[in-house]
């Protein structure tokens, strides 16, 4: 484990130095990603110009949900998001090169092309979350759940990225299939799940556990009743959901590597 972290940091540092050869694009992409996501906040503001609550949630609460989901996703994407570029490595033969190194292939794919431009998204989420927290003024007896909730969210998104990568061992030609769950999941969790239909919410609670990224623990942090009447212990089930999903992702990845067929030459 310590060795894996060391390898990750080493490769991340290497990629950073490689990308620093082109400082111009690096800076513009960081600012660009910050600006694009800042527009999301404008969207929230526009919504609340027309209504006083969104499915029972006020502006600060919606920003809280947005900020926690955004931060989990942005961190997961920065650290592991490139696992879904696997099909590119398979097609170019780069995956063969990773397999001859004495370190895990998962670390190598996850860290590949690590870049600071993704910090733009992280920063934006931090800003939104800070604004939300300053307006909500949560007591410590409920606010303690925020760090573990972000962490579980990172693990859940990282696992979905990994599952998406593992799927590409089978579907080398369709890497976008997984995006519905990663980027789609990120968009879904940015708003109170009570704006969606009950079937969808059940799906993202018990099938793909996106509800545990922020919705369930946020109900505790914001001291809210569950609009769908699900049991209240689910609010503390995020670590369990994250662990189960991470386990499934690890198994799928291993199975994928064993099935790997390489290229023709």
């Amino acid at each position: 484990m310590a060795g894996t972290v060391r390898t990750y940091l080493l490769l991340a540092w290497t990629w950073l130095r490689a990308s620093a050869q082109y400082p111009g694009p690096l800076i513009t992409m960081t600012i660009g990603s910050f600006a694009v996501h800042a527009l999301d906040v404008v969207a929230i503001w526009v919504i609340f110009e027309h209504t006083r609550s969104l499915a029972g949630f006020g502006p600060a609460e919606v920003m809280f949900l947005y900020g926690t989901a955004g931060l989990s996703f942005a961190l997961g994407d920065m650290l592991f998001g490139n696992a879904d570029r696997l099909s590119h490595h398979i097609r170019t033969g780069g995956f063969d090169a990773m397999l001859i190194r004495p370190v895990g292939v998962f670390v190598q794919t996850a860290v590949d092309r690590f870049g600071v431009q993704r910090l733009g998204r992280v920063l934006q989420a931090v800003v939104v979350l800070s604004i939300a927290l300053s307006r909500l003024d949560l007591p410590w007896s409920r606010a303690w759940i925020i760090p573990p909730m972000i962490l579980c969210g990172v693990v859940i998104f990282a696992s979905i990225f990994t599952l998406g990568g593992a799927l590409q061992f089978l579907l080398t030609d369709a890497p976008e299939v997984a995006n519905a769950f990663t980027y789609g999941g990120s968009a879904l969790t940015q708003y109170p799940l009570s704006v969606y239909g009950e079937e969808l919410v059940r799906g993202v609670t018990f099938v793909i556990p996106l509800a545990f990224v922020n919705w369930q623990p946020a109900l505790f942090a914001l001291d809210r009743q569950d609009p769908f009447g699900l049991p209240s212990w689910l609010r503390f089930a995020s670590p369990l959901a994250a662990a189960v999903l991470a386990g499934a992702a690890a198994l799928a990845w291993r199975a994928g590597v064993r099935r790997y067929r390489s290229t023709g030459s």
């Binding site: 290497t14 130095r17 490689a18 990308s19 050869q21 170019t92 033969g93 063969d96 090169a97 001859i100 030459s265």
Partner: peptide, 14 residues
Amino acid sequence: GVVFGQRTTLWWDL
């Protein structure tokens, strides 16, 4: 040690 003549195992941009 492994060498593929047709493609590199080194880091392209480094």
